[in-house]
Design a protein around this nucleic acid. Sequence first.
DNA 1: CTTGACCTTCAAGCATACTTTAAGGTCCAT
DNA 2: ATGGACCTTAAAGTATGCTTGAAGGTCAAG
Lengths: 129, 129
Amino acid sequence: MRIGELAGKAKTRASTLRYYEERGLLQPPERTPAGYRNYGDEAVQRLEFIDRARAAGLTLAQTAEILEVRDAGGSPCGHVRDLLDRRLVEIDEQLEHLRLLRTSVAELRANAAQTSPEACTPESICRYL
Amino acid sequence: MRIGELAGKAKTRASTLRYYEERGLLQPPERTPAGYRNYGDEAVQRLEFIDRARAAGLTLAQTAEILEVRDAGGSPCGHVRDLLDRRLVEIDEQLEHLRLLRTSVAELRANAAQTSPEACTPESICRYL
DNA sequence: CTTGACCTTCAAGCATACTTTAAGGTCCAT
DNA sequence: ATGGACCTTAAAGTATGCTTGAAGGTCAAG
């Protein structure tokens, strides 16, 4: 399978696949005599895995780590559990931060609805913020 | 007031202030005969405003827009209201996205707790994801 | 008069995940 | 044999918000 076909199956682009190879997420495939990358069917699964990892918010570097462990014949399960745990903590922190932000922006907006435009004095710049 | 002093009052750095000037958030101040930037006290308020805008999640470009309207003598209130409204929509979208992500990562993690490491077969790479 | 703190500009670097561009080779159909 | 689709590499561009580096000028204290 050439790179364009694989990209089509994975709903991404050839340039992305070359980038993944550079980042260590895809192993360098065989080449045809002309130098074209020639992928086997298993590359599709690998890309699906990468996509699931991305959907879980793992970085490419983290995903590459997992795949390296696998490629070395190891079992990355414990590592993956750790990454998922850390992701959960991060997500909870982001949620908390966003909730607080939502509250304060909503307050700002509520003020803006009440305040007359004249409140924008030169020294306060804008009372809304 | 020289740039370092202003930076100290605004709890930021001289390099940041120069950057803000370049981005149009700070107006170019007077210079001393030696070429040093010389700020007046009102610059402190302006930086506080910029900080509040940043805390509300507005981009530097949006904040610069607001300040440009003010500097031109206009009242940016309507514009600020619009920006706050859009921010609220964005924040709600981000919250929803994060909640869904949290659910799916938590499911993944729950699976990982139950599954034995042997489930990491070569073709599936890792059952946890 | 020298040392050190502080200032100047312009350019480049950082982090992430790609995309785009340039210049060129390959392959299949007509 | 020629056109077009597809492939190759290396390098640079994108977005955001700064920081860092290089090379040099200013100023007050000792």
